[in-house]
């Protein structure tokens, strides 16, 4: 089994990561900065969802991470296409 201190450490690290990503999304001087923050946050969220799935011991929760990763990617791509003037 995964020891308790490791859970605490992993959640603290990922929570701090989410906080920093949110800060960059709010501060980011221009839209590309916010977009980078959103892209990083989607990946961090996938990690968090998989870790929480292990915490709850529910294998079906991995599906949500899968769908979130695939669809957050499409949203990032759409915003990037808008920015470069291709939409």
């Amino acid at each position: 089994m995964i020891p308790g201190w490791l859970w605490i450490l992993a959640y603290t690290l990922i929570g701090l990561g989410v906080l920093l990503g949110l800060l960059r999304a709010f501060l980011g001087p221009k839209t590309p900065d916010r977009l980078v923050a959103v892209d990083a946050l989607v990946t961090i969220t996938m990690g968090l969802m998989v870790l929480l799935g292990l915490w709850y011991r529910r294998g079906i929760y991995l599906d949500i991470a899968l769908i979130y990763g695939a669809l957050g990617f499409i949203a990032t791509l759409a915003i990037a296409r808008y920015l470069e003037g291709g939409l």
Partner: peptide
């Protein structure tokens, strides 16, 4: 972009 964060 920030609305995407809210949904996340």
């Amino acid at each position: 972009v920030v609305t995407a964060i809210i949904s996340l």
